[in-house]
Design a protein around this nucleic acid. Structure first.
Lengths: 237, 237
DNA sequence: CGCCGAATTGATACTCATCAATCTTCGTGG
DNA sequence: CCACGAAGATTGATGAGTATCAATTCGGCG
């Protein structure tokens, strides 16, 4: 597997209180007085697609808040193959395990250009002692992780390859295209396979079939419009 | 699917402070003063194998601490099939989602006779406001759920059916048999299939093969001694 | 003893992995 | 500007692994 260097561009200390995704982020509930408790720098970084944010087993000293982009969390099997266990989107917090353990449990890789904030664990511990408002957010984030994990197990690792691909296409984030129609940029076929527990070739075949049958339509290279009703039928609803 | 009535035997209010699994349980870190904050009854129940502890969608008013036995958490797919997403063992806390949401997200079914304590969410909320000691336990429990979910995805939903069964056998709880050799009582073939994402017949065939090849040896009906080294080879290590 | 549900086994069809070849896209250097 | 090379995507051919449907056996219980 290719492993890119981290090409992080440091962008200085962001303004948490005025953060554009403040209401999505971990600090959503904090109040003025709480921010005064943060005595360590919270840095903002931007990295290119393909960069590794951290590796499984690395010492976990910080949480990362994803401000924009898309990140995959990868876990390796003993036989060397890999499985993608979660996708993280803007507003998600990466590396929650840093608050209860001392090393990261996955390898986090940027799938697009990514902007994120680095929050040292000391900040979290300090705030945890002082304010219950952070707890609720932490618990909600744990909860979301468990829910996504359970959904992946039932929706993306169960049933035929075609049904999994259909559920995957229904699940991934869409953006409004030029004409307002929602479109989605797909991942590489290899990543799709690693998410669904099928081979790269099978993932490719399923998507090619969907293209030919008109269920999805390619607008740009690897960017598609989805017929969601047809996908729901294929997904087995 | 068969769905048994709840046959719960109420056993009165347990003594949390003297609980036999106190150091395993959610209240492990609480101190004398903290217990005085619990003003609602914490009941202890015992139910038979097959009982449904709660259904997905039920209003979530309590957490359950499992004191003995084994419980499966089931999630249903839109096509009516089911998938077991987690097993809960003594010391585990069921229904953590009650602290952040208002309904249960799985159906919890006892796989053996089960003894458990029911902790109303109000108790959790009260304690959360008063003591940080509960937070750490809650976070650790969320963390464990996420880890188990990730492990299931990579270990039990990836690779050939035989490798999955082998990993499953390595993972399930063992007890010391009469001669001190660890033995495990298996689940029904249907449940094993629902855990591994294969059919009942495939699960049965794989286990029958392992029996014939001597990798596992039946001591009692459906209770086995495992050759762990051989299983590790089959698991692909 | 006879019944019932679960487990096992068999036969067959289908899905998916595997190995290999071709095609597409994009970047690089002549 | 085009040729060429590299990486990813697609397609094809084939065999292994599973699902499916059906029959049979096993163990427990009335």
């Amino acid at each position: 597997m290719k492993r890119s260097r981290i090409e992080a561009a440091w962008r200085g200390q962001p303004e948490c209180q005025g953060c554009s995704i403040r209401d999505l982020a971990l600090f959503a509930d904090l109040q003025q007085a709480d921010f005064n408790l943060i005595h360590l720098p919270i840095d903002e970084f931007e990295v290119e697609a393909g960069s590794v944010l951290y590796n499984g087993g690395d010492e976990a000293r910080a949480l990362l808040t994803l401000r924009s982009g898309l990140v995959k969390l990868v876990q390796y099997l003993s036989d060397g193959s890999q499985r993608i266990v979660r996708l993280q989107r803007p507003g998600d917090t990466l590396g929650l395990e840093a608050t209860v353990g001392d090393q990261y449990e996955h390898t986090a890789v940027a799938l697009r250009r990514v902007l994120l904030c680095r929050i040292p664990v000391e900040v979290i511990h300090r705030l945890s002692q002082e304010t219950p408002r952070l707890h609720r957010q932490l618990m909600m984030r744990w909860h979301n992780n468990v829910r996504q994990a359970d959904t992946w197990l039932t929706a993306l690792s169960t049933g035929s390859a075609k049904a999994r691909v259909a559920r995957f296409l229904l699940d991934i984030p869409k953006e409004a295209g030029a004409d307002g129609v929602p479109v989605c940029e797909l991942l590489s076929r290899e990543d799709i396979g690693a998410m669904l527990g099928v081979t790269t070739e099978t993932a490719s075949r399923m998507i090619a079939d969907l293209k030919r049958s008109g269920v999805i339509t390619e607008r740009k290279l690897n960017t598609f419009v989805c017929n969601e009703d047809a996908l729901r039928v294929l997904a087995g609803e």
